[in-house]
């Protein structure tokens, strides 16, 4: 077994055992932070599936919101289990992605213009959620209806955080698997080609619109699943945390920080941003409520200028460069 695989296995075992390690009174808090890292890393992975090919979306909150509200409302109003609700959530998010991405691709809206379109879509969904307050509870949000005494599984609501911990771990691993699949496929080459030069890509038979739609819908569907997972965990949905510019930008910050071209980039970036906001919250309390966003913003600017491959991406590249001369004796 290669050292890399051995390390991965060790990390997995450690992650699987973590909830049972004695942590004093800190267990609930640690679990809470790690669960959030799992879920938001998954969402970051979904975002980077598009972002790495130059399809920069500043409106992924739209897909989060569509996902989270779909399952929540179906459960609250019709008692439909989120296990089925998530199917509807994914389909709706993909439909929304199609409605946004198809005209963009047909009319050649790319780069900054595409980013602006998605930014607007994210806001539209947030405003819609606020406006439809009879259903959605408006800006106050909605709490998930508590299940009957023995219906936890059906409702996916558990008091024990360890359930969400393992669920989040599984989700995160699934996200890594999808990312790696895309990374190794010929479709990745096609998407890279499209990202660089659509005319040349089309001239060698690549169906530009189909690929862009495909990757956008995949990203949107996965993001919706992330939104559902977060809503189930927090048991409360709110337009500010699950739609709109704020959350959309936070996803982008995390991924750019970690690096969007490497498998673990989104995870590293998400872990860092969550750790940073927890730290600021503990140190400053609620006095500097906008502080985290300000710091993210500054970091983002610094990173885009000085470290465009992200923290993890740059470290990984550095390690690769070190290994190459060692492997090839002079």
């Amino acid at each position: 077994m290669s050292p890399g695989r051995l390390l991965a296995l060790a990390v997995l075992v450690a992650l699987a055992a973590a909830p049972f390690v004695p942590m004093g009174g800190m267990r609930q808090y640690v679990l809470h932070v790690v669960i959030q890292i799992f879920i938001w890393s998954f969402i970051g992975q979904a975002w980077s599936l598009m972002g790495r090919f130059g399809l920069v979306s500043l409106g992924h909150g739209a897909f989060l919101g569509v996902g989270a509200y779909t399952t929540t409302l179906l459960w609250n109003f019709y008692g439909l289990t989120p296990w089925l609700g998530v199917v509807a959530a994914v389909l709706l998010a993909m439909l929304l992605a199609f409605v946004v991405a198809y005209p963009c691709s047909r009319f050649g809206i790319t780069g900054h213009y595409f980013a602006l379109v998605t930014l607007a879509v994210g806001e539209v969904i947030r405003l819609l959620l606020i406006a439809e307050r009879d259903w959605t509870g408006g800006s106050l949000g909605v709490t998930l209806r508590a299940p009957g005494s023995d219906a936890s599984l059906l409702a996916i609501q558990y008091a024990d955080k360890r359930v969400f911990y393992y669920g989040g771990l599984a989700l995160w691993l699934a996200g890594l698997w999808v990312w790696a699949r895309v990374d190794r496929s010929m479709a990745r080459s096609a998407m890279e080609a499209i990202g660089e030069d659509e005319t040349a890509a089309a001239s060698v038979g690549i169906h530009v619109t189909r690929f862009k739609l495909g990757i956008t819908m995949l990203s949107a569907g996965l993001t919706a699943i992330g939104g559902v997972a977060y809503a189930q965990y927090i048991a409360y949905v709110n337009p500010e945390t699950l739609a709109g510019i704020g959350v959309s930008l936070r996803i982008v910050f995390a991924v750019v920080l970690g690096g969007m071209y490497v498998l673990l980039g989104p995870t590293v970036g998400t872990a860092l941003t969550i750790a940073l906001s927890e730290y600021l919250r503990v140190v400053f309390g609620v006095k500097f409520i906008g502080m985290a966003e300000t710091i993210y913003g500054l970091l983002l600017v610094i990173f885009i200028i000085f470290l465009p491959a992200g923290i993890y991406g740059s470290v990984a590249a550095l390690l690769r460069r070190r290994r190459v001369p060692a492997a090839a004796p002079a």
Binding site: S189, E196, G205, H207
Partner: peptide, 21 residues
Amino acid sequence: PRPFRKLSILENVAVAAHYGT
């Protein structure tokens, strides 16, 4: 020439071989 700079020489041609038919 409009090569795909992010792909290797081989991948440039392989992507055309794969999607061109």
